[in-house]
Structure formats: C-alpha cells, structure tokens
Amino acid sequence: MSFVEFKNIQKSFGDQKILQKIDLEISKGEFLVLVGPSGCGKSTLLRILAGLETPTEGDILVNGKSVLSKEPKDRDLAMVFQNYALYPHLNVFENLAFGLRLRQVSESEIQARVKETAEILQIQNLLERKPKALSGGQRQRVALGRALVRKTSILLFDEPLSNLDANLRNQMRYEIKRLHQLTKSTIIYVTHDQVEATTLGDRIAVLNKGHIEQVDSAHNIYEKPANTFVASFIGLPEMNFLPGDLVGRPGASVGIRPENISISAEPRSGALEAQFDVCEYLGANYLIYAQLQGQAIRLLSPHPPKTATGGKFFVSIPLEKSIFFDKVSGHLL
C-alpha cells in the first residue's frame, strides 16, 4: 500500500510548465530518490509535498488523505535544505529544539530528544555553539539533526550534500543510509548526483523536463534503462550510443556501457578498428577516449592500449551486454 501518493501533479509558473502530470507512489519506510538534471522540477515536486508550493493541478495523498489544504507544519514532515538554513541567532541546541518548542513539547522531553539526536549524529559537544562557529560538515549534521529530532514520518532532503567536499559527502551519504535503517522513516531525497541516487535509493525516480522518465530500483535502472535519457544519465562514465548498423541492427540505437567494451591490440573476430585519443588513469582501470568510425566513444579497460594518440587498436562490442533503443523515439526496444 502506498504511503505517499502524487496524483497528476502539475505546476507552472506563468507560461512555464515545471511539472507535467506527475504520478508517483511511495510506500511506507521507503527511501526514494528523485534524480535529474537541474531544472527538471525535482525540487519543486519535493516542495509541493512539503507545502512550500501549491500545485497548479493534482493532488497529494499521505496515508490515503489529501494534504493539500494543510499548512506545512501540519504535514508531519521535516526537511533538510541544501544550504542547511540553520537559525543563525540560535545555538545548536536551540536550533534542534526550535520545532519541538513550537509544538509545546515538554522541557524534559525536549532535553531528552535533543540529547538523543545529538548522540546519533555525534554533535553532543557542539550544542552550545552558534551556526557561525561550525564547519560545513558540522552544519550539515545539525541540519540533519533538526529534521530528525521531530521524529516525523516523512523526511525530505533537498540536495543536502551538494555543498560538501567529496570526502565528507561520502561519509554523510553513509550516515544518511544508516539513519534510514535506524529510523525507518519514509525518505524522499532530491539530488542531481547519480552516485548518491544509486547508492542511497531503494527506488529511483528519474525526472527530465517535468516528466518522470522511469521509476525503479537502481539495479533495474542501470540494467534496463527505459530510454536513452535514463541510460545516459545513470552510469559513469556515460553510456556509448552507436548506430545499429555497426552491429547489424539497423534502425536501432545501440547502447553499450564503457566497462562492457573490451580492447585488443590485434584484430579479433567481430572486433572493430578504433583510433586512440587519450586515456585517464582511474586507479582500478583506465578510461579510454577513442574514435570509432568517426564517433567518439568511452571505454574502461584494466590496461591502456599500447599505442600513441592517433594509433590503431581494436574494440569488441558484446551484443548480449548491449541495450537497443528505438532510434527515433529513444525508447527501449
């Protein structure tokens, strides 16, 4: 049974359509990631659920009941913002306690809950500080704490990690995952980063230009992208698209992930000749840029081709690992 349900949500600002006909169901305790390029409307969708925007059309049900007429504060949800939005005039303790005080929670309860949350997030020693005196990572933890402390059934994350550096981001990603397992809340998480999307989400909804392109588990999205957009958006380095003629499927577009292409110095059966361009060392393997019959391709290989720029080598494209799309519509065949 779905816990949160978006029904035919549409939103436009003036003539500009931000969201068109969004239908989406999320079950209780699920971790759903909304991912897509910037401007695709993912944040707007989140904010509509939070009550910070009103949809032009459509309805949102939580637990079977429409919440559109409710004030944000009455929707039983909390949100973590990209820029943290900590109250600069309050110290960390008061930042966490703010929502509880407004809800007339008793002082002892507040003490207990703030303490508990602070322990989970390991920010006990920061409680007396003002946000100004915190580092980026610490602020992020406090923002997380402020959302957690209210123990709402829904948690919303709006690109919470995009202001952090790479190391911190990895660590926080891990913590968010851990928190989800701890609290069992329903989480809706907006990001433009596909790594966050695939690592965090139980399910991923890929948005583009106000549409949902595909909703599925990370694995399914990776293996069976619904269309060329999803295929190229998810997966790093990006999937290669080759004309179907190359592999004897005219009229189709062939998608092949870089790690599935193998290389050799000598021609093999079914192998195609390619010109080497440049190569990047990634540690586990090499990312090779090359030209295949006038088309740029990327491929991953445990060793670099033994040739100089412009030199020849051979690539094999295994058909069983290729995905075929309609050349015109871009849909999966």
Binding site: R47, A50, G51, L52, E71, P72, K73, L77, A78, M79, F81, Q82, N83, A85, Y87, P88, H89, F98, G99, L102, R103, R146, R150
Partner: peptide, 27 residues
C-alpha cells in the same frame, strides 16, 4: 535573508507571524 530559513521555520511549526517574529526579526 535566505528563503530556506523561513521554509525551515514553517516546517518546524511556525505560523507566518511566528516566522517573522521568531526568525526574521532576530536575524
């Protein structure tokens, strides 16, 4: 003042007036 500050406050349970009084003015 970042808009998110108010939004956070509204989610935390503030009415419009409380947003103004408890967040915007002190800031």
């Amino acid at each position: 003042i970042p808009k998110e500050l108010e939004e956070a406050a509204r989610l935390d349970g503030c009415s419009h007036f409380q947003v103004l009084y408890k967040v915007i003015l002190p800031v």
